[in-house]
């Protein structure tokens, strides 16, 4: 016994050796997601006069590895809303499960007034976006973010085209054309040339919008190293959703690549 009550009953280091901390739990404070793991790249979307078109490629990358080449990143919620997910794929799948239970609950509570069983869209795209923004903001506030940037495309309660985004911080905004990730740099300028403002989007034909989005997907494939030429594209209009999940980029021309100089060993 010595004059240090704190030491009473404790093993002496000179007898037993220093405390071996390797038996303690290895992790520190409870860790939440610090970075995305398997990721999807850009989602691009734009409004046109009576609907919205949205597209995303079918690739899920593991860092620089093109890990899964058949992952669908567009999700149809109902006849009035489609979501496009950029960012972490497992978080996307978590949200998918959340949305499935939401839609189940919704349809159970209110199967639509028309009596038509296909009219189950009691949550329109705007409602869905509001809901998702709360989910995302709550998770960021809890320091446990869902590592996604989501585009919500569809129709609002007045059947007007609706397009808005929400990201892992809960930040929300709406515009006639939107893109996530790399697309925010590369695709948005292309889309804004076609429809610079809401007024222009309101006169834009569906074909022009679809072509612009396809063009943007092509440019992204040229320049985004984490992209794929297989993609999904959805058009949401009053008469429903047209979702194609196995499209291939058409009319590629890599001729421009021949003229690129300065990235590697070159003779000229």
């Amino acid at each position: 016994m010595n004059h240090l009550p704190q030491a009473w009953g404790r093993p002496r280091d000179d007898v037993y050796g220093a405390y071996n901390a390797s038996f303690l739990p290895q992790d520190g404070p409870k860790q939440h997601t610090q970075s995305p793991i398997v990721t999807g790249t850009s989602v691009v979307a734009m409004k046109f006069k009576d609907g919205v078109v949205v597209a995303a490629d079918n690739l899920a990358s593991y860092g620089s590895l093109a890990r899964f080449t058949d992952v669908k990143r567009l999700r149809q919620f109902n006849t009035r809303a489609v979501l496009g997910f950029g960012g972490d794929v497992s978080d996307m799948q978590h949200l998918d499960r959340l949305l499935t239970s939401l839609s189940l609950r919704e349809n159970y509570a209110d199967p639509g007034s028309s009596g038509d069983e296909t009219d189950t869209a009691s949550l329109d795209a705007k409602n869905l976006h509001t809901y998702l923004s709360k989910v995302m903001y709550k998770r960021r506030t809890d320091f446990n973010p869902l590592w996604n940037h989501i585009l919500v495309a569809g129709l609002d309660d007045a059947d007007k085209p609706f397009l808005a985004s929400v990201d892992l911080l809960g930040t929300t905004f709406s515009a006639p054309s939107l893109a996530t990730g790399f697309g925010a740099h590369l695709a948005v300028p292309i889309l804004r040339r076609v429809a610079p403002d809401e007024a222009a989007a309101e006169t834009l034909s569906m074909d022009d919008a679809v072509n612009a989005v396809k063009e943007a997907m092509k440019v992204l494939f040229y320049r985004d190293a984490r992209s794929l030429d297989k993609y999904s594209i959805a058009v949401i209009r009053k008469d429903g959703v047209q979702l194609k999940e196995d499209e291939k980029l058409e009319g590629q021309s890599w001729a421009f690549a021949e003229t690129i100089r300065g990235y590697g060993t070159q003779i000229h």
Partner: peptide, 12 residues
């Protein structure tokens, strides 16, 4: 209204 941005359904 806060979570979905819509008015409450009356039957609900």
């Amino acid at each position: 209204r806060l979570t979905y941005g819509r008015p409450m359904n009356l039957s609900e």
